[in-house]
């Protein structure tokens, strides 16, 4: 597979490490009332769609950036690649 890195252009997937569902960005608030339940869901529950899926890839043999890659799990068609840091910020993550 080829991942079109937003800064570096197309790179072989062999340079990357796959993590999984980009929902891992949405780490719950540790002080929430139901933090235990939220963290349980965060750590263990994932969607497993047959179709477009937002997932985390790490450019380990490259610039060490984490990417959010939108990939169709049935065709490997990649429709979007963003820096995970930008995605995290856009989802309101802060310090």
């Amino acid at each position: 597979m080829i991942i079109n890195h937003p800064l570096l252009g197309p790179r072989d997937a062999a340079e990357f490490i796959y993590l999984g569902d980009a929902a891992l960005i949405d780490r719950p608030d540790w002080q929430a009332e139901d933090a235990m339940q939220q963290f349980h869901d965060y750590a263990y529950l994932r969607d497993n769609p047959a179709g477009p899926h937002q997932e985390l890839w790490y450019h380990e043999q490259g610039d060490r950036s984490w990417l959010v890659v939108t990939r169709d799990t049935t065709t490997h068609d990649i429709t979007d690649v963003q820096l995970a840091r930008d995605v995290a910020r856009s989802r309101g993550r802060d310090k």
């Binding site: 985390l56 060490r64 995290a88 993550r93």
Partner: peptide
């Protein structure tokens, strides 16, 4: 060594993206 580095980058970029920290 490699796995921890990867996790730290994940924490830095995906969990707390507005921290000034460099690895």
């Amino acid at each position: 060594a490699v796995l921890v580095f990867r996790r730290l980058e994940f924490a830095r970029q995906c969990l707390w993206p507005n921290m000034d920290v460099h690895l």
